[in-house]
Design a protein around this nucleic acid. Structure first.
Lengths: 106, 106
DNA sequence: AACTTTAATCGTATTATTGCGATATATCAA
DNA sequence: TTGATATATCGCAATAATACGATTAAAGTT
């Protein structure tokens, strides 16, 4: 049917998948890296930095906001985005947990 | 146009996105977790364990193989899959690197 | 008030992803 | 040889994701 059958998997599995999705596109990786570098919030410098249109970047930002990894603060006509530390830590924990749970292999 | 514009991003950004994609679906998370648990290779126990059809699971396995995180060894009529340690370590390094590069926030 | 900047959203086109049944193939067991 | 088991692949359908231009809306600026 084409739809991800989320219901059949655990909450944790869905959460991991959701966080991973944030990093599953090079444009979103670039956005996140930029936010990590500038540390302090940025707004639409991204439009100048990334090879994508304003509307596309806005969509990616919205997706990251939906996932929870970033949050935006309105500042006049601008919106300053930054990493949401709490959510980031949860994502880090979940992903680190699965990445480091390897003990050996065949 | 609907296509991810990979060319406009760095190799590293694309690699991170590619590895993240492996985890960006609950079914693949479940498959990976199962492979991590059983440690030794498994084949199509997955069909019995996961709420998905054989063909769908085969597709997910193929996607993971394409990304490189797992490899399959033919054993008679079966195929035993397991984590590819080298690739896994590279994925771990890249993802850990970005996840831990946060210094603070607004 | 007119203009600029910023950003979200709408509409649309295109491609990717997810999923399943059916089928094909290969190996092993009886 | 016949049958069972294990997998991959094909064909199809439906939904999701990516991207852009155009438009809208809000907040400053002149």
């Amino acid at each position: 049917m084409g739809v991800t059958k989320s219901d059949n998997f655990s909450i944790e599995q869905n959460q991991i998948a959701e966080f991973a999705k944030a990093f599953a596109h090079p444009a979103r990786v670039a956005i996140i890296q930029h936010l990590l570098e500038t540390q302090t919030c940025i707004c639409n410098d991204l439009v100048k930095v990334l090879p994508l249109s304003q509307s596309t970047i806005s969509q990616h930002l919205n997706e990251l906001k939906r996932i929870g990894l970033i949050k935006g603060a309105i500042d006049g006509p601008k919106v300053c985005y930054c990493i949401d530390l709490d959510v980031w830590e949860r994502a880090k924990g979940l992903l680190r947990n699965i990445l480091e749970s390897i003990k050996g292999c065949c």
